[in-house]
Design a protein around this nucleic acid. Structure first.
Lengths: 138, 138, 138, 138
DNA sequence: GTGGTCTAGACCACG
DNA sequence: GTGGTCTAGACCACG
């Protein structure tokens, strides 16, 4: 069952936290293709936030091709398909890489350490079951 | 002289773009300790944006210990000092690493490629003058 | 100035009508790259509909890369860039072509006539200024 | 025998998918005038969907003059008759042509390509039996 | 003044 | 019961 954690006292919008966590769950295989997500209302009740906020998050995920909506039935993990051109994919990650590099440099985290942190995160959500990572790693 | 580029057609707030670029310039040595930044008014005129926006950016940089304000004189690159504890530094980069990893995984960029992109960015702003990189990278 | 017409008594959602008309205006050059769209509130007042509906439409357009948001400034026509893979583009038009063909066949519109109708529509919104179509046409 | 395929993971309502496919089958001659459609219950069992959904679809088809209901006997392909005026037919296709053209233009599919896609679809369901197309295309 | 986020709540479509 | 659309209105961030 999908576990979503909302952090308040944090300026990341609620809907974005949800989007991010679902993306990770899908990308890492915790949520499988075809699997149902919690209904808008159920998740809203569970997290004690407004159903519209869940709708907004789910809507974003639909538009990014991560989940599909079946009206009256619910939302389901979409089959993997490539939506964005190579250029657009690059543009999208660069928009996130640049502030990260700026912050890391400024804060005094050295290059090795940053790459190490990211590697660890990547492995944590790798498709190979997280409790059973392959030896070779990267 | 500090070269700052503002991208419009982009919803990254102006003040954040300025903060990010100054941090990079300082971290990479393009701006040296003690060096003066453009005055609030000069930069505002130059970029054709509101002086309040520059003030906001410089204020954030002061709070992060990147620059110092000298009343009546201007802003200057601060001596490097560690402000944040190891834990706080980690918390700050993680806040940026997580959405990046979520997006990259979801979009279908593979781990190697992402690490490569980041390495490239890191080198671009490495302290070794960018026009004179050491041979092997690191 | 952008002219948007809302048809009520019509089951096409308001936000979708807006999205469609902006896409056409941009694709045909009636709205030029960099040009500002009416503000959310101005358009809402003008069309006498809720600002949230406009926001929804503009948000969709941003996500499809048609317009960019500049917080505090407004929305502007985005530079043209290819976002979707060839496959995704095909998938998207097919989702619209199939019901059209089904309806046309069923209703008794013959193939030539349908193609003619579509040609006419395409030309109406061609980049060549609509009042000055090139001779060669199709 | 009529072959109907339901796509889930797709927000096109089930009843609409059925309507569309029956229209195509009739228009292309796969279903002949007077031929019986599967009973509501049989089709519901076959597709594993609610019989109400089939009823809704068949009801729509009756209203559009595509099939006739014979109480106690079932549904049958109706003799071809023109129901809608030329103006109404035009209005109906235009409602589908406009969003298609908007999407195609916006997405960067060029006019020739779109017309080609539609031609292909039209031929796929042409009255000439699909396994025996005339030589010259149209 | 501009957009961004979130809540509250209504009414509808689908199954 | 499920999602979809729309309205109303609050409060915040940016400039």
């Amino acid at each position: 069952m999908l576990q979503i954690n909302i952090a308040t006292g944090n300026d990341v919008p609620l809907f974005r936290q949800i989007v991010e966590q679902v993306k990770l769950a899908v990308a890492s295989g915790k949520l499988e293709v075809g699997e149902a997500l919690p209904s808008v209302r159920a998740l809203a009740t569970d997290l004690r936030i407004n159903p519209n906020t869940i709708s907004r998050a789910y809507g974003d995920l639909v538009r990014d091709g991560v989940i599909d909506s079946q009206r009256g039935k619910g939302y389901f993990v979409a089959p993997r398909r490539e939506i964005f051109t190579k250029k657009e994919r690059h543009r999208r990650v660069m928009a996130l890489v640049q502030p990260l590099v700026a912050e890391a440099k400024s804060i005094g985290i050295d290059d090795e350490e940053l790459l190490q942190i990211i590697s660890t995160q990547l492995q944590k959500y790798s498709t190979d079951s997280p409790s059973n990572p392959k030896s070779g790693g990267e």
